[in-house]
Design a binder for these strands. Sequence first.
DNA 1: TATGTATATCGTTAATCGACGATAAGCGTT
DNA 2: AACGCTTATCGTCGATTAACGATATACATA
Lengths: 110, 110
Amino acid sequence: MAKAGSGNSCGSRAEKVSLPDVAWAEELAKLTWALAHPARVRIVRLLLQRDSCLCGEIVEAMPLAQSTVSQHLKILKESGLVQGEIDGPRVCYCIHPKAMQRLKQLVAEL
Amino acid sequence: MAKAGSGNSCGSRAEKVSLPDVAWAEELAKLTWALAHPARVRIVRLLLQRDSCLCGEIVEAMPLAQSTVSQHLKILKESGLVQGEIDGPRVCYCIHPKAMQRLKQLVAEL
DNA sequence: TATGTATATCGTTAATCGACGATAAGCGTT
DNA sequence: AACGCTTATCGTCGATTAACGATATACATA
């Protein structure tokens, strides 16, 4: 740990700190949590690169069991970042553009 | 980015899917994981708004025990997003601008 | 040195995550 | 209806998280 020095940028003001918006924090936390695992980042990346992807293709691209990938997809769906569309016996996944845009906006506004 | 495929957005091409960069996914996952909890989002927000903040002020601003806040701060430090500087008997926390910029860049590039 | 303040760490507990294999459910085809 | 293929869910297990109170550590000052 650095030794502090005096004239640093740490203003030691005594004013009361106002809370950031709780709902805002929860929204961002929910979205970032969806990306808080390398496997989910890779899935999202895959979907963005390919625009859409059948579930089986995602499973093939990942070094994980099918059930594990399915779990990650469920988490991504719950976050809103990803949508799944039933296509016959298969499921086609794609990014939900609005949610992705919202995530980017919230992070950019940090 | 591949051909948009025929008609519907779900291209059912059979081509092999290439893996996204693993290291890249891990870097982004590590940074997003740091924000994957509302308390940590609020701490980061606080630090960005006030530029820097004494640990005690953060504790006061959060509805959590001091030890819990300290744990979240540790996680944020480990992610690189936040730095702590010892200032006498206190610790002054601030955002690490480069790490924050990196996070924004990675998310924006998604 | 002793004391008080500020922060970090420890130890515990309940809950959740992440992984897997096994199995169920949905759909198209025979 | 029965089968095969694809995907989701279940059950389990070990590891990790998040929370807290208690305690240790570091620093400034009396």
